[in-house]
């Protein structure tokens, strides 16, 4: 086992991890943050997407010890401390972009990263950004609506 220090949702955390532990195991089992989901375990579905220094990654295939000294953002870290949702989260609720909800945290983090670097994406840009996130309910149209609501997506 080894000790690492990292920033999770703005707080400094110290965690003991196995050298071959994944970031997803650390978040879910070590830190009790169950927002990132475990589905394919192979970096195919995006249900475990979190941000590492602002970049979306699949936590299921990212090494936990590699996160030492870095900043991780999970879905638990998006809303304000008082529970107020981000505009994108609000839009997900308003447009019905959540069906079973299992893929939702991953989509939110990918799309937050997209909007952070490109606040007014075209629909094609939104679609390309989402390519690594799978919605098993196939609710993509409403997810696109949600992004359009906050970003004024261009045709």
């Amino acid at each position: 086992m080894m000790w690492i220090e990292l920033w999770v949702n703005g707080s400094e955390r110290v965690a003991e991890v196995r050298p071959d532990e994944t970031l997803l195991e650390l978040l879910r089992d070590g830190l009790g943050l169950r927002g990132a989901k475990n589905a394919c375990s192979e970096g195919e579905c995006g249900a475990c997407t979190v941000l590492l220094d602002g970049v979306p990654i699949d936590a299921c295939i990212y090494a936990a010890p590699a996160c030492a000294g870095r900043a991780v953002t999970t879905v638990e870290g998006l809303a304000h401390a008082d529970g107020e949702l981000t505009p994108l989260q609000r839009a997900f609720v308003d447009t019905g972009a959540v069906q079973c909800g299992f893929c939702t945290p991953g989509f939110l983090l990918t799309l937050h990263a997209l909007l952070a670097e490109n606040p007014t994406p075209t629909e094609e840009e939104v679609r390309r950004a989402m390519v690594g996130n799978i919605c098993r309910c196939t609710g993509y149209a409403h997810i696109l609506d949600a992004v359009a609501q906050v970003a004024g997506v261009k045709e």
């Binding site: 970096g43 995006g46 997407t49 590492l52 979306p56 699949d58 990918t110 990263a113 390519v131 690594g132």
Partner: peptide
């Protein structure tokens, strides 16, 4: 190559 999650790292 993969999605953003793969391309970013």
């Amino acid at each position: 190559v993969g999605g953003w999650q793969t391309q970013g790292v």
